[in-house]
Amino acid sequence: MPKRKHLELWLGLMVIASTVLVLIGYFWLTGQPLGQRGYHVYLILPDGHGLARGDRVNVAGVEVGVVRSVTLEAVDRVSVRLFVEQDVQMPSDSRAILQSVGVFGDQLLVLRPGVASTFLADGDTLELGPPASALLDLVGDLGKDAEIVLAKIDRLLADSAIEGFHDILTGLRSTIGQIEQIARSNSADLKTLSSSLARTALTLEETLEGVEIDKTIADLEETAAMMAEAAGALRGSAESLSSVAAKIDRGEGTLGLLVNDSSLYVELRNTTRSIGALTTDIQMNPGRYLKMAIF
């Protein structure tokens, strides 16, 4: 039956093609290339921290596998199944570390190689390492800081630095002695200068406490207040003028229209001309406009 064979062939092709597409799409979307060889290892965690199937597994910053499944076995026990590429041989005492990456808190599993001579095999269970690299990084930072501080202390306690301190102290002592000697030899001049300064200060004080100065200051204050008031009034006037000028510029109001609209000017001139002509006509022919009749 060629007809039947023809139908079966085409339908079979369609089903096979779609199945292949689904499989390719599935493995591609889950990040598992078809035919890739590798082994599975397990990791038991007390908390999954959002780890999900498809999350990456890295070794030394290179992607070497993928999280195949995350299963909650008990309320405090999460089993994670990892796929690791065949050519990545990890010592059996390697540890896994959870790291958060990206703005959405995606998780990344980092494998830290151990030192054992045997390697992880399919079905083995990994140990969880310390949380991320944060602790190690912190220890590293602290070590660096301590090194810097120690270097500075070393520099401070060096022999040359101590000798420098001795020289500075000797110089300081000599300077203080010289200042004492100068003060002793000029004590009479210093006393005269001091009494003169005291007299000047007294005179100034008397002048400042005088009645005339008080009156002058009061007058000045009154004048300043009046000027401030006048300035306020002037400011108000200026603002009003400015507002009026702005309205005129914008063409608001009669004056604004007159200033900005040339057609008004033209119309006004025409009207004036017409009134002139009318007046002349009235004068020439009053009978047209003024009727006076008794009956």
Partner: peptide, 16 residues
Amino acid sequence: ILVLPPLVAIADFVGI
């Protein structure tokens, strides 16, 4: 029932 899933698989592949 037989043909819709393959057609949808093709549509998914083409759509993405």
